[in-house]
Design a protein around this nucleic acid. Structure first.
Lengths: 304, 304
DNA sequence: GATACAACTTGAATCAATTTCAAGATCGAT
DNA sequence: ATCGATCTTGAAATTGATTCAAGTTGTATC
């Protein structure tokens, strides 16, 4: 019989386009997914999709079952939300602070979804910069903060969102484009363009350059587009989330290269007070962000 | 996490009104259901229903989850049907023959449901009496026959529908009402009123009276109502399906008594040719009959 | 055309989780 | 007060899903 886990697999498959990717998304091995798919196929006695094509090409039956999967997960999450409301009332507020500019790309759509589901919860974006945004939680000036690092702080919970690749971004004619991947030393004589935030929150600096004692020239810009423009015109290099610059890479406006042999992987967490973690709409918002991101950002991975 | 099996359990619970009854309906022990319910309740951290009341009294959360269960099973069976149509076309016919008159009670609603789901399949009721209705299948004059006995016939499949109690029916003042249950010998000096069908298809005669060499006076009537009327007016006794006469028992128009210590249990099967069993709409019709019956007939049990 | 690599498949072994079993608790009815 | 029916509970047993490790297939590269 078809089970919920099969439906989750189908969705992961539909959204990630390969067995391997879907497997990591649902925290299983490819093998497990292969078994699952085979089970479904032998239950319906027909194939679900063509294997050798990316993205997957679904058969009509496969398509119908993917649709079913979406229907059912929607019904499930609606019910869970309603139960949550039944159990702990509906009102409340949701003040969101972000540390990272490009996050707005997916934060806005997430907030839209959330607004539909929790009309009574008042939403707000806490703007401006803060030396340590997590303090906003303790000061009760925000309810959720999106941060790139899990800390050990009492009374604060960090809900994992996802991990993503942060490649170096180079102008099309930059000499470093010849290399397959970059190392800290490659940055020595470059101008590094970053957002205007403290070094300890810039993963490239904190995790790669500082440990290697490399301190390139620096320059800042507030908007992702501005950084890209500077890079494209050869006035420096940068490191940006892969998901934030995919369209520019597709158009070959700039070139990306992995930082380090395995690439630089960064993480994103939603921080809240422990009290906040007990309110169901906050947890639902975290889940909504995950859902939206996995649906619309390519190449991100689950984080625990 | 909530699983499909939990939802099936919730539906069985909602429709049967007790853990024990629901358990037999989903082919599990009460214990298993108890564990399941406890698991759901501890997941949502709230009770689903009050235990000591029949029918179960649901909490708002329980109610919402039952609604979810119906939503999801509907989505599932819609999808399964559509997949079936995708795989083996849509046209066909469905000629139904019944051996037992009272079956129309649930056969009509089942046919209504089926008609909605398979518009292209032409429905027909094969009327009239036949010495052996299963022959209608081989002669290709019917596609499904509802029968009370599983036989060993090559090329014919018997799909179990349900089992049910067949109590004896007595007039309100009949002296046998003093007994807790009746035995074959109690029928010796009675007039037995039956449908006008061969003895080997009357479970009471075949399984109870004949083995005990008891041959009471006989009388026949075609309609259930006619039989009831005769019984009520003291002109004989009968044995009828519990589900068929529930309203008359509730109104105390007649009295029922179990036949034998454990009561007489009868069975109902849908017979089809093996070829027929391969068409998806026929199997769907069988499932529809089961669903409709378990939803609307009280006191019936699963049959394998 | 050989080789390597990536993605997927397969069967056996492991491990987790659900079911059953057996005993005990609770409630109503006689 | 006792019986019977219904449900609960914890531990054992069973089921079945996942992992592991090896094999297959297809694609790219030299």
């Amino acid at each position: 019989m078809l089970e919920l886990r099969h439906l989750e697999t189908l969705i992961a498959l539909a959204e990630s386009g390969s067995l391997a990717a879907a497997a990591s998304r649902v925290n299983l091995t490819q093998s497990a997914l292969s078994h699952q798919v085979k089970a479904i196929e032998s239950h319906y006695e027909c194939p679900l999709f063509e294997r050798k094509s990316t993205p997957l090409r679904w058969t009509p039956v496969g398509e119908r079952l993917v649709a079913l999967a979406y229907d059912i997960t929607r019904a499930l999450s609606d019910a869970n939300r309603e139960v949550a409301r039944l159990l702990d009332g509906r009102a409340g507020q949701m003040r969101i602070a972000v540390e990272c500019h490009s996050c707005f790309d997916w934060l806005m759509p997430s907030m839209d979804v959330f607004r539909k589901n929790w009309e009574e919860v008042e939403q707000d974006l806490v703007s401006g910069f803060h030396p340590d945004p997590v303090d906003l939680l303790n000061e009760n000036r925000a309810d959720v903060v999106i941060v790139s690092r899990k800390q050990r702080r009492r009374g604060i919970d960090f809900h994992p969102l996802f991990r993503y690749r942060m490649p170096a971004i180079l102008g099309k004619k930059h000499s470093l484009t010849k290399k397959k991947h970059l190392t800290a030393r490659d940055f020595t004589n470059e101008t590094l363009i970053t957002y205007p935030i403290p070094d300890e929150r810039l993963d490239l600096v904190r995790r790669v350059l500082s440990p290697a004692k490399v301190f390139p020239e620096r320059r800042t810009a507030t908007l992702t587009e501005a950084i890209l423009q500077l890079v494209a015109s050869g006035r420096g290099v940068a490191a940006l989330p892969a998901w934030a610059i995919q369209p520019y890479l597709d158009r070959e406006y700039v070139i990306s290269r992995p930082i380090g042999k395995d690439g630089l992987w960064c993480e994103l967490y939603a921080a809240s007070t422990s009290a906040g973690s007990a309110t169901s709409y906050l947890l639902d918002f975290v889940q909504t962000m995950r859902d939206v991101c996995f649906r619309q950002l390519k190449g991100i991975e689950v984080l625990r």
